[in-house]
Design a protein around this nucleic acid. Structure first.
Lengths: 214, 214, 214, 214
DNA sequence: AGTTAAACGAGACGGTACGTCTTGTCTTAGG
DNA sequence: CCTAAGACAAGACGTACCGTCTCGTTTAACT
């Protein structure tokens, strides 16, 4: 499997020959999501995706190097929409809100069947792991910053003396990890109560993290 | 894929014909782990496992229904050993210890490449999800109970007025989820410092969880 | 494309595992001939042959390395039957008879579309050329010997003083070549008259060939 | 595949727009012959030919409908040169000479790999067969006429009472067929000796053909 | 000198077949 | 009845060409 011209890469100002069809891009990604929801990661066939999209396999392979890359891009679009953090008046409520929102995303059939699968594939593929982080994970991370600043303005958390990005990373790993584990492994519901308890645990735990790091 | 005689099931007292070779079982599981570490889940082939184990494919299929089941059993053996929680003198230290221990387990090549993969497969396969919980996840869960009781005896946490299993589940989801997310997605190290910060967050957050549930 | 265990090769005395299905061999060759007659060499697809034969592609590729080898074997069977030279009472009649017979063979749809194609492929493939000679061409060659001996016994040709295999080869090239050229290139009919004229030319020319070689 | 403006067709007196590049025509035919000699018919790719000729595929398809037509035209040029029959003083020598000459042509790599291939394709394509006859075969046929007349003038053959074109066709099929069969199938050399024997066979056989047809 | 219309290069496109691979079952011979 | 060996049906894989198309550019011949 050879590397391809990245689909997201901005095509250079002047390219000879017939330009790539933007409609094909869209059709393929839509078909991928639809197929994922229907048959799951394991049953996903690039031939089938191409057929659903009304596109030749070649067209698909010209843009993506394989199943992994395609699915990451297909999922990325889903995550892009869900990027906001409505101000619910307090840190606890904000966390509860974002947890519910994130769970909603994870529980969609496309996401359920595919997200862990690409993470698993990425275990042995550094480029893929990077792509997942860039296209999916990091986009959510700024919510942590936003939420923390808002809480500091409200006086719910003390102001920072110095930057501590590792702390925000930890918070993100805790929230995202807990939700994913709840949904994918424990198979329990992420309802308002569960989200509230997680929010409480974090609100109380967050104070300690603002003490000087060890 | 048809159900098989479960590998773990105790074979009935008297069975006619040549008995199954216990050596084959071990050889297959060892080969599976070795192959996982080498080529990862995606590259894992049942034909290759059989060849490595010096066993015919038939023998393998007679015991396991497919790749998923085989790998779950192969991983289960890895998790079986790691079941203790040395008393390090305080709740924070205990949590830090168990986090480091768990990370160590997750970061092995066999686990890294296979655990998420079977979780992903389980997204559409209830039986598999149950098997993973029973054989892998739940085995670790009693550590939460043990740790909490020890902390209550030390007076670090207030005694329970009533049972609250959902609370322990949440704690488990948070710890396990955070470690897995850190390792598999964020690709950051789970070192003493990271473990300490997570432990602190939990110790302080845990108090709130002992207030009456909402 | 890797070499395969030859289909015709006698399988060694003892082979482990399930033996190859003889029925599959037959079904594949029959399907090949049928497909050739229907869609011709250019339209012949190994996938289609497999489907017609009710066999998986793997089974086909286990026996033959590709289209060329398969078709040679499929044609060989056709040529095997046609091996006799009825005594029509005189050299001229015998030649006329064999020419008509040979033309009949060449003009079958399977042969028409495939024979020249494999010969063309063989132009760059020594192994294939050898296989064609062994499996198809040489089988007909003994007819020349037989016919000549019969004519010598009748006194139509003088007895040989010494062996001269090159002479028989020439005769074969002339007869086979003329018929093939007539059918494939000139697109003329090989009817009784044409066959008779060729026979006359040869009968009169043959005398000269029994003079001492130059 | 649609019909094209034939490459050989005289372009109509007035055509608007940019005229077709004659250089491209030449480059494509040269590239075709070179590619044929290198990779053979089977390996010949129109994309590759275009690349070798420094021309876009479109340019190629604007002139020829496909591989078959292109190769026929490429071969035709080779055969165009070889059209003479030096008077070697006698019928036998003349035949020997033309046989050697023809063999030389057939044994070129381009011819070897491509001639039989297009003949094979023509088995199911009447237009192609006609084109081959016109562009390649018939050009050689007048040599038979020329040789026969010369021999009649020398007195080596009796004068014709009536036209008998079928007889000349037969002679052509015999000579061309025998040489092709010798080269392509029997894989034997067409050397002076072989050519002489064929010439003798014909000279002696030819007398009979001048008797009244049956 | 400008206009025009076709040829040109480049390369994307929908298709189709390729030959390989893996899956899970089946068939033999041997223990 | 189990085992090893390996053939089997099924079907996805990723690649290579096919012949068509769609661009933007170039090149003559006709205004």
């Amino acid at each position: 499997m050879h590397p391809r011209t990245s689909f997201t890469a901005v095509t250079s100002p002047k390219r000879a020959g017939r330009p790539r069809s933007a409609a094909a891009d869209r059709a393929i990604l839509d078909a991928t999501r639809a197929a994922l929801a229907e048959v799951g990661w394991g049953g996903l066939t690039l031939g089938d995706v191409a057929a659903r999209a009304g596109v030749a396999k070649t067209t698909l392979y010209r843009r993506w190097a394989g199943k992994n890359e395609l699915v990451v891009d297909a999922l990325a679009a889903l995550f892009e929409e869900q990027l906001d953090l409505p101000d619910l008046g307090g840190l606890e409520a904000d966390i509860q809100g974002v947890v519910l929102r994130f769970a909603e995303l994870i529980e969609r059939p496309e996401t359920r069947t595919a997200l862990m699968a690409v993470v698993a594939e990425a275990a042995q593929d550094d480029a893929l792991r990077l792509r997942i982080r860039e296209a999916i994970v990091d986009r959510q991370k700024h919510l942590v910053l936003l939420g923390r600043r808002r809480a500091q303005q409200r006086g719910e958390l003390p102001p920072d003396k110095a930057e501590d990005p590792a702390r925000d990373d930890l918070i993100f790993d805790v929230i995202a990890g807990a939700v994913v584990h709840r949904v994918m492994v424990s198979s329990g519901p992420v309802d308002r109560e569960w989200a509230l308890r997680l929010a409480r645990l974090l609100v109380d735990g967050l104070g300690a993290l603002h003490l000087p790091p060890p």
